[in-house]
Simulated scan of single mutants.
Amino acid sequence: MEVIKGREFTASRAWGSKLIANMQGITTKLHWTNQPYKWHINAGEEVFVVIDGIVHMHYRENSIEKVAVLEAGDIFFASVGTEHVARPQGEVRVLVVESEGSV
């Protein structure tokens, strides 16, 4: 049993995380960052939930780049093969649910 104050979480580096759970190979991690990630495609599906802050989620559909502006409470679901990159606007905290070892 653990209570986590998501909006208070910080890390010593961009995209630093706290592992909350590993449920049969599916991880749930709380991340803190103030820097963009990198363009990537996950090995499986990914659920990305903004806990605090604003994230510009860039993704490609049919080779066309699109942007979704995500605020606290918003969820981005990346299906298998979705190329995407998260670009925070200042400090953000996000919850990421994905297969263990995913990029």
Rank of each mutant, 00 (worst) to 15 (best):
Q89P: 00
S102G: 15
H84R: 14
I26C: 11
Q35W: 05
H40E: 14
E61I: 00
V96A: 12
M23S: 15
I4P: 01
T33M: 05
V55I: 14
K66C: 09
V92S: 00
G101Q: 10
A21K: 05
N42M: 11
P36K: 08
G53T: 04
F9H: 09
S17H: 13
N34A: 09
K38F: 10
T27S: 04
V96T: 13
I54T: 15
P36I: 13
T82Y: 05
T10I: 12
D74P: 01
E71P: 02
Q35E: 13
W15M: 04
A11L: 11
G73I: 01
E46Y: 07
Q89D: 15
T82A: 06
R93I: 02
K29T: 08
G90A: 11
R87F: 06
Y37R: 06
Q89A: 12
V103S: 05
H84P: 03
H40R: 14
H40I: 08
V92K: 01
T10V: 13
A43Y: 08
Q35A: 14
V50K: 00
A21C: 03
Q35Y: 12
E46D: 08
L19D: 11
G53N: 06
Q89Y: 09
G6M: 10
E46S: 06
T28V: 14
D74V: 00
H58F: 09
V85A: 10
E8C: 01
R13A: 13
F48D: 11
M57Q: 11
V96C: 08
P88K: 04
I51R: 03
E46T: 06
H40C: 09
I26R: 12
F76R: 00
R13T: 10
M1K: 12
I20H: 08
V96I: 15
L95D: 07
E65W: 02
E98M: 11
Y37S: 13
H56P: 04
G90H: 08
I26D: 06
